[in-house]
Amino acid sequence: MKRSKISGMTIEEYRSWMKQRMDDIYLKNESDSVDDIVENMADTKLYVSSVDKSDFSGIAI
């Protein structure tokens, strides 16, 4: 089996080794509550559309 340059570990051994150190690479998550955000938007709407019709103008139908 091919050995990497990481202390002679195989890539599988390296992955296993890293799984013991996940706290270092877990993503941070300290976001605001979506419940609070949506509650504050209760009296308003989404006024903006994600669909740009011009993107479809060249499509043969």
Binding site: V34, I37, V38, N40, M41, T44, L46, Y47, V48, S49, S50, V51, D52
Partner: peptide, 28 residues
């Protein structure tokens, strides 16, 4: 649309000029 909705919410909280500008833009 979700991103857009939450961007509107953010602007509504921090800057109404941007909020209104995004609303008037109508399209992402």
């Amino acid at each position: 649309n979700m991103i857009s909705f939450f961007l509107l919410a953010y602007y509504r909280k921090v800057n109404m000029d941007y909020y209104n500008k995004y609303k008037e833009q109508k399209i992402v």
